[in-house]
Nucleic acid binder design. Structure first.
Lengths: 226, 226
DNA sequence: TTAGAATGATAGTAAAGCTATCTAATAAAA
DNA sequence: TTTTATTAGATAGCTTTACTATCATTCTAA
């Protein structure tokens, strides 16, 4: 069975739905590769246009600017991750197991054959790690937030926070711990590779240790009640 | 007694030492206000030049580009914070009290009358919260790191990690917990104000609750041994 | 077959992000 | 006191980024 998940993206994120045309899909697919290659700061629509043999103006028909495109990409990731989490914890009853599953999903790229698009999840995961904060660390947070742009991210955090509450209803900070977990899954990965002395797994770059750190971080907190 | 602390900045951060001239100090002081006002993305040397009645070229004599200037500002903060921490825990013997003091210092702006310069610490703290990640979330992390640019940040984390180890030598992730603490002190503050549903203190925006969250986060972990 | 939408091609503008050069002011050295 | 180095101001200019507008063409769906 071929499973095709259609992720409905917030219409504020684009001018014309990139999933609705060949050019749109090319823009999304190639921008992931190009941003990963040269970094978001050096990435321009001009360079992307050259890479996919179209024109700058062509890309501007889909996305207002490069920042919106980044938001689109990162949001796409959050959407898919939430779907993944829901799907994978569906058959679990033990809240502890559910939380362990979430941590596992947060610490690795999403399977290539999920999502029904040919988006490169491995590279997208790298972009999320290296650039996702720029999506909300901007003067436009307020407006974007009003336009529901961060809804998928917030939904994911709410979902995780609810698992914490399910595990221990008396724990006082489920939401903050959820955002801490999500952010740290990515930050510690980034630090491990680029500023290893900020972590305890810099030497062997062992993802399992990072994984263990996150589990200890979460369970030490929610086990303690408050 | 007037205490004048001279912070020695890494020479890679500037072309000409801004603390060595009136214009240099103006650049630093005013850039803090301007970045805070319009955000780092919209901030340009041209705008700064107009604000301090000099020319673009004049500013380029001090800083290679605006990113380096941001690194300079944030690094200045890390340096001063480390100094503050060392000074304040100096007279404490109980490791728990030392850690509590660190968390307190992390959660608020630095006193205006410390540091011997007329830099606006309140506003600088806001910049650190809103923009500091951009300092290392860039393609140049590697080069910068080699040039010791992040040393003050890493030194601060090492200092905190050592306090954790002092409190409990068997805790396995002192460094990762230290960087988690530092990052989350700022992230949760940012979330509280801009994406409140990602925290548990969004409604009343109560800094004491944030403070309590950070204490619970840290002590739940290091108390547990591993 | 024909209107409408999507794309390509081209052009152009304002601002950002630099570099270079020359001159005036000023401070340190001879 | 004169000379010389350093710093700042003024101006110019150049490339790239970020974006808008226009028109012709192709493709598609009624």
């Amino acid at each position: 069975m071929e499973l095709q998940i259609r992720i409905k993206m917030n219409e504020h994120l684009f001018l014309r739905d990139p999933e609705s045309s060949e050019l749109g899909r090319k823009i999304v697919r190639q921008s992931i590769l190009l941003i990963h290659e040269i970094g978001f700061e050096d990435f321009t629509f001009k360079k992307l246009a050259v890479a996919i043999h179209t024109t700058e103006a062509g890309i501007y028909r889909y996305f207002e600017n490069k920042h919106r495109l980044l938001v689109y990409l990162v949001t796409w990731y959050w959407n898919l991750l939430e779907y993944q989490v829901l799907y994978q914890i569906n058959n679990l009853t033990d809240p502890e197991m559910k939380i362990r599953k979430v941590i596992e999903l947060l610490s690795k790229e999403i399977d290539e054959n999920i999502g029904g698009s040919d988006i490169n999840h491995k590279v997208l995961y790298q972009i999320v790690i290296a650039e996702s904060n720029k999506v909300y660390q901007t003067k436009e947070v307020g407006e974007n937030n009003k336009a529901q742009v961060y809804k998928p991210y917030k939904d994911l955090c709410t979902l995780i926070a609810n698992l914490f509450t399910e595990y221990n209803p008396s724990y006082a900070f489920p939401r903050s711990l959820a955002s801490t977990l999500v952010e740290m899954a990515h930050f510690q990965y980034f630090f491990m590779h680029h500023l290893p002395s900020l972590t305890d797994f810099g030497k062997d770059k062992d993802t399992r240790k990072l994984h263990e750190f996150l589990e200890v971080l979460v369970f030490s907190n929610i086990r303690n009640g408050k």
